[in-house]
Amino acid sequence: MIASSRNSLNFKTIVSKIFYLCFIMARLIEFDEEQAIQKAMEVFWKKGYAATSMRDLTDAMQINSSSLYNTIGDKHRLFVRCIKHYIKMRIDAVEQRYISFASPIQALESFIKDAADIITTEPNSCLCVKATFEIEGDDPEIQAIITSYDNFTHRFLKDLVEKAQSQHQIGQNENADTVADYLVSTFIGWYNSFILHQDRNKILNMADFIIRQLRC
C-alpha cells in the first residue's frame, strides 16, 4: 500500500511538472508570436500589402512558411493580425500620452501638433491610411477593423472638444461631433498632401491655423 501510494504521488508529481512545462512553453510561443507579428507589421508598413511577399514576411519573422501557416495562417490572416497590433499600439500611445495634460485644450492642441509631426516625419506614413487606399474597399474585414480605429479617434477628439467647451476654453457654438469629424478628415488629407508635396511646413502651418480657429 505504501509503495502504491508513493507511485501515485510520483505519477501526480510528473503530471504536474508536465502541465507546468506545457504552460511555460505556451507562454514562450505566445511571446515569440507577438515578436513575429511586430516584425511582420514593420514589413507591411514599409512596403504595403500588395508589394509584400511571403518570403519578405518569413525572412523578417525568422520562421519558415509552414510554421507561419500553422501558427497564424496565410498572408491575409497575418495582415489582419498586424493591423490589429498596429491599432493597439496607437491607442495605447494616445491614452498614455494625453491623460497627463492639465487641460483638455492643451491635450487637443498637442494631438493636432503631434499628428502633423508624425505625418511629416514618419517615413512609412500610417499603416491604416495605406491599407485604406490599398485594399480596404475590397476587404470587409480590414474595413471593419480600420473603421473601429477611426471611431476611437473620433470619440477621443469629441470628448476633448466637449471638455474644452465645458471649461470655456474653446467656443461652444460648434458641434463637438462635427469638429471631431473635421479633424479626422483633415489628418487623412494631410497624409495625402505630404505624400504628393513632401512639404512639412505646409502641414505645420495648417495645424497652427486649425488651433487658432479652435480658440476663436
Rank of each mutant, 00 (worst) to 15 (best):
M1R: 09
F11M: 14
K17I: 10
F19Y: 11
C22I: 14
I24D: 06
A26D: 09
L28C: 12
E34Y: 06
Q38Y: 09
F44N: 00
G48E: 00
G48R: 00
Y49I: 08
S53I: 02
S66R: 07
S67G: 04
L68C: 02
N70S: 15
K75L: 12
L78H: 05
F79T: 07
K84C: 06
H85R: 11
R90G: 08
A93M: 09
A102P: 03
I105D: 03
A107P: 03
K113H: 08
N124H: 03
N124G: 00
F133Q: 04
E134I: 04
D138L: 12
P140H: 05
T153S: 11
R155I: 11
K158H: 09
D159R: 12
D159E: 14
L160V: 11
E162V: 10
E162P: 11
K163R: 10
Q167G: 00
Q172G: 11
E174V: 15
N175M: 04
N175F: 08
D177R: 01
A180M: 00
D181V: 09
Y182S: 14
Y182L: 12
I188T: 12
Y191H: 15
Y191Q: 11
N192K: 14
D199L: 04
N205P: 11
N205R: 14
D208Q: 11
I211G: 01
R215T: 10
